[in-house]
């Protein structure tokens, strides 16, 4: 079954975005990306020493994979820093896409909602296609979408924590209240079951990095994540059953052998 989707005019078949950081080696990173089937990978920019030949080699490895590149603004603490880094990313990565990250708290790397809104306004004015990493705050997400940010990426839990979707209610509310927004769960996914749950809730995709890169076998884990995203998406499309507080026999009770009418059980009352 074809289940393609559009992200800022680009048609994708995979709903798994993959980060490129923290892998044991560049070769393992490459293989993990290939096995995941991801079509979007995240990158970043850092200061380059002329003695180190890092930038060109990592870029050559990533670019030859043929994925769409989504540069991030990780480490930025203000909208001014964000816009500067985004402009530099646009030139070097040759894309208008930018994964907007602006940190408000160093302890849990929680996004700063005020700088996030301001940065989104400036980036959109400058022609960027913004993928906004944010908390699961409904009002912030609505404001971002109202500004014209088509892709909003609430956290499942703090970056690199692997705790999964710690506020399912908030994420369900986002999906329910923002049916037209493209929503991806970004950050906090530690297991394939977390990714599957996000997809079962109706999210359009997930972004995973640490859970894959720091697994004992990143290639196997990227494959597992890929299967989980597909399974969760398919389950969402299938229309899950409604939960019930009482049991319902799945095996037919009609013509049950050895059946006999019994008196309804009555709870014994305590005698004093």
């Amino acid at each position: 079954m074809a289940d393609t989707w559009d992200v800022y005019g680009v048609t994708l078949s995979s709903r798994l975005f993959l980060g490129t950081a923290r892998y044991p080696s560049p070769a393992i990173m490459e293989e993990a990306i290939r096995c995941s089937g991801a079509q979007v990978v995240t990158t970043s920019l850092r200061r380059q020493s002329p003695e180190v030949k890092g930038g060109r080699s990592i870029w050559e490895r990533i670019s030859k994979l043929g994925c769409n590149v989504l540069p991030n603004t990780a480490g930025c603490r203000s909208s001014k820093e964000v816009v500067l880094l985004a402009q530099m990313s646009r030139e070097i990565f040759e894309t208008d896409w930018i994964k907007l990250e602006v940190t408000g708290d160093e302890y849990n790397l929680q996004p700063d909602p005020y700088e996030l809104i301001e940065a989104t306004e400036k980036l959109l004015e400058n022609g960027f296609k913004v993928f906004a990493y944010t908390t699961d705050d409904l009002v912030v997400c609505q404001r971002l979408h109202g500004l014209g940010c088509e892709v909003i990426m609430p956290w499942g839990s703090p970056i690199g924590s692997g705790k999964g979707l710690i506020n399912r209610y908030a994420l369900e509310t986002l999906r329910d209240r923002m049916p037209k927004a493209t929503l991806l769960v970004d950050a906090g996914i530690g297991l394939p079951s977390h990714a599957a749950l996000a997809m079962e809730l109706g999210f359009d995709g997930v972004l995973v990095n640490t859970a894959v890169a720091t697994a004992d076998d990143p290639v196997a884990m990227s494959t597992a994540m890929s299967h989980a995203v597909k399974a969760g998406r398919l389950a969402y499309l299938a229309g899950p059953m409604a939960p019930s507080d009482t049991a319902h026999a799945s095996t037919p009770v009609l013509d049950q052998p050895f059946w006999r009418q019994t008196e309804p059980r009555v709870k014994e009352s305590k005698t004093r």
Binding site: G19, T42, I62
Partner: peptide, 24 residues
């Protein structure tokens, strides 16, 4: 990059030279 030819740097200026790295 297209402006590097004509851009003049002054004493005390601060340059940030960045290149691609892996990112999440």
């Amino acid at each position: 990059k297209e402006k590097w030819d004509d851009f003049r740097v002054s004493a005390g200026d601060t340059l940030d030279v960045l290149s691609p790295v892996e990112g999440g």
